[in-house]
Simulated scan of single mutants.
Amino acid sequence: MLLFKTDLHKYKAYSGNKSTLVLMLTTQGLWALFVYRYSNKIYRSALPSFFKKPLLRLAVLWQKWIEIVAGISIPYSVSIGHSFYIGHFGNIIINSKAIIGDNCNISQGVTIGISGKEEKRGVPILGNNVYIGANAVLAGRIVVGDNVVIGANSLVNKNVESNVTVLGVPAKKISDNSSSGYI
Rank of each mutant, 00 (worst) to 15 (best):
Thr165Ile: 04
Ser39His: 00
Ser49His: 03
Ala139Tyr: 08
Ala13Glu: 15
Ile100Pro: 12
Val130Gln: 02
Thr165Val: 07
Ile66His: 08
Cys104Thr: 09
Phe34Thr: 06
Gly181Gln: 11
Ala152Arg: 06
Glu118Gly: 12
Ser180Val: 12
Leu58Trp: 04
Val78Ile: 05
Ser83Lys: 07
Tyr182Ser: 01
Ser96Gly: 08
Asn153Gln: 12
Ala139Phe: 07
Ala98Arg: 02
Lys158Met: 04
Tyr14Met: 04
Val69Asn: 04
Thr165Trp: 10
Tyr36Cys: 07
Ser162Val: 08
Cys104Trp: 10
Arg44Thr: 03
Val144Arg: 03
Ile72Trp: 02
Val149His: 03
Ser73Gln: 10
Leu56Ala: 08
Glu161Phe: 00
Leu138Cys: 07
Tyr182Val: 04
Leu33Gln: 04
Phe89Arg: 10
His82Ile: 01
Val60His: 11
Trp31Leu: 13
Pro48Trp: 11
Ile114Val: 06
Ala134Thr: 14
Glu161Asn: 01
Ile100Val: 15
Val164Glu: 03
Leu138Asp: 03
Ser83Arg: 10
Leu3Ala: 03
His88Thr: 01
Lys10Val: 11
Val78Leu: 00
Lys12Val: 09
Glu119Ile: 05
Gly109Asp: 07
Ala139Gln: 09
Ala136Tyr: 05
Leu23Asn: 02
Val148Cys: 13
Gly116Tyr: 12
